[in-house]
Amino acid sequence: MAGASQRLTARPAGVQAGASVRMWHRLGIAAALAGAAVLPFAVSGYRVYQFSQVLIYAMALLGLNLLTGYNGQISLGHGAFFAIGGYTTAILVVKLGVPYWATIPVAGIVCFVAGFLFGFPALRLGGIYLALATFALALATPQLLKFKAVDEWTGGVQGLLLSKPKAPFGLPLTRDQWLYFVCLACTALLFWAAANLVRGRIGRAMVAIREHPVAAEAMGIDIAFYKTMTFGVSALYTGIAGALSGMVAGVVAPDSFGFFLSLSFLVGIVVGGLASIWGVIAGALFIELVPIYADQIADLLGESAKALPWAIYGVLLIGLMYMMPTGAAGAVRAVVRRLGRLTAGSKSG
């Protein structure tokens, strides 16, 4: 009782804080975009490639977070959709000569259909069963890509090589820089769409299904429709990321889409924060950069620790979960809440 009344009196302060938070939010987005736009001119070519990867992971994670974070459907197999996106682009470009920019939406649509179809068996499989089915998908993906009957299209074990596209209209950009801007544009578009999606009626329905499926159904939400659609949209995001990944890396090969990739995606959304749009950027930075740092730490430890980077990665991961069990977004929220309480306290006192 006492707690409820406290919360009631705290509300007006919260509303004010909400307005200023929204302003800061917009400023923050503008600053981040500006920073992202000058970034490729400030760092070396390899770094540009790395940051393209971060953007790509952010898109893939966003897709997975829509499914797992917002809608509560766990997937240990999103690497499969990433692979489908990558191979769609590669096959269209290499085998059919389609211009690379046109393959991005095609990859998205193909993955949407694949995800939508996978969403039907997923309807029957809750929790741990869905984890198994998607786990199986992740393990089967490289096998299927290497399968003899399709290697005329997929290039078998070697995969397919793509040449990185040149910047159009004679823009003074390197290929990596140009691809970086393509990724940035796609990222901005997909984030904008996702932010609007989760803020609206559809987003509320997705969360309602996660939190309380029975009540959601009683409210007239078509659970089967929302769940399969979410699966489709989620796969679309991840597929577009996969398509861009094929271009940026210049190659698609079965073993780069293994189980570990799917695990990394799951790691990314939990590290970033479940059901958080902006958290996935932290998650993407983590899964792209931390393995590299772990490598460097292993180097520092000397010759005997050469094979240890992944052990260091594992320790960092567990340590991070210990410090921030709800991910980066959860930690930021906690800090903001505490700051809000401090300022509210100083005003009233």
Partner: peptide, 15 residues
Amino acid sequence: PALTVVIVFIGLLVI
């Protein structure tokens, strides 16, 4: 949360 524990398991797996 359940998924946090899953990530800890993944960490152990990698280690």
